[in-house]
Design a protein around this nucleic acid. Structure first.
Lengths: 341, 341
DNA sequence: TTGTAGGCGTTATCAG
DNA sequence: CTGATAACGCCTACAA
């Protein structure tokens, strides 16, 4: 039998003040003496008082909920090493401020409605992930007058504050590393076309190759999935064109599937082909050979996004947040090309 | 500038009835004529009325929120292929009923408080995952009088309704498959000790081995992580005892890390050692060799859990739900033992 | 510095 | 069948 929840009036009568005083005291607002504040706080803890979200939301016309709408096929989530720690990061920060995250997984058609519904339901703000080229969500949320933070630099800024990270430098590092090993024919297997971080990695790959005086044209379209990575890898070796001696994958999942595909095509890694990944998933170090890849910090992304969003929701002026850059982690999947430097 | 949200009073004055009538009409309750109900509904749609969750929650003393508390180090989430689709499954069902999921990630000490806080904050019910032996959460939630559903059969039922799935049969299938191939020295690498599904898989392994007349004692403790799987694998081959010719891992992550560890120890798979996993993660088919493993359906777990919880929250009498059994998927990582059958 | 009195949007309890 | 009216818990003018 759960004891009935204490209200601020219970605290008030326990301390011997009015409920208004309790409200002031608990919300760090002026209008109450330090002594009273202290006693009120003490009583609140003693009684196990927890603010009633519904009541607060009702009066403030704004809930303590932050939204994250994921336009994805749920099946694809299992393979995404980024998503869960991202949620955890967001949640950690939010929880520290008495807020919570509500998640929605929708298909393409339902996306727009989801934002509208959630805004009407009082969601205080949104975290936007999986940014797309010409992403409409920025303008939807502007129209809805709802605060939002983008994970990654939105393509058309759309006035959205963003948490940024320069993944371009890490791709350039990968290319430089391969070039230093003596590779000249380097390919890139991309993520899903139309996503901002896909394009930014392609662009980074191309400009790094060009800078090194190499052909930047060996780009094969992938989709961030194992199947896609394996397929793109096979295509790279069945074009009749000279084969690449190294492949820069847009994520680890594709790289590891590519590793298997190369193996089945009789190419050894790194003997015949060197490969690099992106994300540094827990299994990357346990590939055979261990995967040279780029670190990522989904937890950090989540924390930063939540912090930024909270500031916006609280009406503070904010500037974009930049995360510390990813690092290239050298492991066994990269080595000199077969014809040796 | 978002237009102010219409309230039931706006509807009431538009239709020319009282707000109570509107409430009745909108909630399909008796006490209002069919004609009035129709006009009220029409007006609600016209005005774009959406129920105010906060107000409803305040008066009904119960929110539309369902909680999931994860006692995990956030870093470990990246490697968990089960978690994200589970959330998606829960969310899908919840969203269909106007409810949402709120997630909390806590450490050991904060777990109990998290449930208390969330219940006090009006969370309508909980999904319990990562069940432990002698799990205290069942009794915590009973004390809090909060509905909850367990994912997996709680050890001491604790009166908790559960979504069950017999993973024991799949482990038995794995053992049978290996025995049929001629293996006699089969080892099991376990999950985190003290978790219900770890123990149930150990138990299933032992009884299958015993049933086959084989030594059920070759059990090495793991922890569901890549590091743990690799470590346990190494230990299996450094005891001085006769080496196993096959290993049944409690999940794919450990199996794939074990594969790498075996490789480094100069053992070929399946030539020297056969291995099986559990979960059928997307990468399992892309291991070298492809991993023989057991399917899992995190999305299905999530959906079932949410459905069951909704029934409980709505006060229906419920019985445990049983999911269709996992299947053993035969791939390349299992074969005859080196000394042949 | 403190207390009183609304009101937020909805549901539930009563009278009519 | 309908319509006032009082909660629900909290916040915030305003008055004391």
């Amino acid at each position: 039998m759960a004891a009935k929840r204490p209200t601020i009036r219970d605290i008030a009568s326990a301390v011997g003040v009015s409920s208004a005083a309790v409200s002031y005291a608990l919300n760090d607002r002026p209008g109450v003496s330090e002594e009273t504040r202290r006693r009120v706080r003490q009583a609140a803890t003693d009684l196990g008082w927890v603010p009633n979200r519904a009541a607060r939301a009702l009066v403030s016309q704004q809930s303590s909920l932050v939204g994250l709408v994921l336009r994805r096929r749920p099946e694809t989530l299992a393979a995404d090493p980024f998503f869960a720690p991202l949620l955890a990061g967001i949640e950690q920060v939010l929880a520290g401020h008495g807020r919570s995250l509500v998640l929605r997984v929708v298909d393409d058609e339902a996306e727009r409605d989801a934002y509208h519904e959630m805004v009407k339901a009082g969601i205080a703000g949104f975290v936007l992930t999986d940014l797309r080229v010409d992403d409409p969500r920025g303008s939807w949320l502007r129209d809805l007058a709802s605060p939002a933070v983008a994970l990654g630099r939105p393509d058309q800024a759309a006035g959205l504050p963003a948490v940024e990270l320069d993944d371009r430098a890490a791709i350039a590092d990968s290319v430089d590393h391969l070039v230093a090993l003596g590779h000249a024919r380097i390919a890139h297997v991309t993520g899903i076309p139309g996503m901002v971080h896909t394009d930014s990695r392609i662009e980074a790959f191309r400009s790094a190759m060009t800078r090194c005086g190499l052909d930047p044209g060996l780009v094969e379209v992938g989709d961030f999935t194992a199947d896609g990575g394996a397929g793109a890898t096979k295509r790279l070796f069945s074009t009749g064109r000279p084969e690449p001696t190294a492949i820069v994958y847009a994520n680890d999942l594709m790289a590891m599937a590519g590793l298997a595909a190369l193996d089945r095509m009789g190419r050894s890694v790194p003997g015949d082909v060197s490969i690099t990944g992106f994300d540094d998933v827990p299994l990357a170090a346990y590939a055979s050979p261990p995967l040279t890849t780029v670190t990522s910090d989904a937890l950090g992304w989540g924390r930063a996004a939540a912090r930024l969003l909270l500031e916006i929701v609280d009406g503070d002026d904010v500037t974009d947040l930049t995360l510390p850059p990813s690092r290239l982690v050298l492991r066994g999947s990269t080595g000199p090309p077969p014809d040796g430097p």
